[in-house]
């Protein structure tokens, strides 16, 4: 049965779009039929991160409003056959989405795909609540930093009250994805520790994504990091997280401290 996954956080800039692209691609690379849906109406970026920005004709708003058929708006990835993108509108605002329209589109997507990955906009307003509305499970993205952890806690509360599942008295499955983790800074006590974040938020850990230049390089060229450099640390962490989403029991790999060449030669730890 199809699974609807929302990637959410409350705070902006923590890595939702990066993670939606990487998890979506990793699930597709594992053979699943995947669509990533951009809910950030007015500020779309998933198309750019996926490298499909030149191929967008119709978008989620066109489909919701009946101006285009779903099949016309879906963009098939050129690298992974089983990966598709449903872009957001760049020119409308979030009020163009209606709860009924979204429900109809999600139901239609459920018939075509194994995984529907919804990239949520930041905030706790309409856009964010519509993105999570029909989710079966949520990936809560946070950085090891106070304000993003606080916002994550807020979002967890909203997931437990405002989703269709919650309203039906069911539990929505929630997973924590800790991104932009810098092991060196955590070791020096400059950043919240993994166990601190886990204790505070008290939801199961899906993975730890190291802060890495590979993520920037992948976004420069418009390719999810799991496709662009599968051997890199963030790609491996995302692939591992995807396996966990598919129900496999995999131990979470802890990012190790990165030392520069100089650091290695002289035994220094370099930030």
């Amino acid at each position: 049965m199809a699974k609807v996954l929302v990637v959410t956080s409350g705070k902006g800039g923590v890595g939702k779009t990066t993670s939606s692209a990487a998890l979506g691609a990793a699930l597709a690379q594992a053979g699943k039929n995947v669509v990533v849906v951009d809910f950030d109406v007015g500020l779309r970026n998933l198309d750019l991160i996926m490298g499909a920005e030149r191929r967008v004709v119709f978008d989620l708003v066109n489909v919701v409003q009946g101006d285009a058929k779903l099949a016309q708006a879906l963009i098939r990835d050129k690298r992974v056959e089983t990966l598709s993108l449903l872009p957001a509108s760049q020119t409308r605002d979030k009020d163009a989405l209606t709860p009924e329209g979204i429900e109809r589109v999600i139901n239609e997507l459920r018939e075509k795909f194994d995984w529907i990955v919804c990239d949520s906009p930041a905030g706790i307003e309409r856009g964010a609540t519509l993105a999570m509305r029909h989710a079966d499970l949520a990936v809560v993205v946070t950085n090891p930093e106070v304000s993003s952890v606080r916002d994550a806690d807020r979002i967890i509360g909203i997931l437990d009250s405002k989703t269709a599942k919650a309203e039906a008295g069911e539990q929505i499955e929630k997973h924590l994805l800790l991104t932009r983790y810098d092991a060196g800074r955590a070791a020096r006590g400059e950043m919240l520790k993994i166990e601190d974040v886990l204790e505070i938020l008290a939801i199961p850990l899906l993975g730890i994504i190291p802060d890495s230049e590979d993520v920037l390089r992948a976004s420069n060229v418009g390719c999810p990091v799991t496709l662009h450099n599968p051997a890199s640390a963030p790609a491996r962490a995302y692939a591992e997280a995807a396996r966990r989403l598919m129900g496999e029991m995999v131990d979470v790999t802890l990012p190790i401290e990165k030392k520069t060449l100089m650091g290695r030669l002289f035994g220094w730890k370099v930030a």
Partner: peptide
């Protein structure tokens, strides 16, 4: 990245106002 952005932004700026040209 620079080239992709230049292309995209030139297109988006030229489009402001007539967003649903394709429709």
């Amino acid at each position: 990245a620079r080239e992709r952005l230049q292309l995209l932004l030139a297109h988006e700026r030229s489009l402001s106002g007539k967003s649903d040209l394709a429709v």
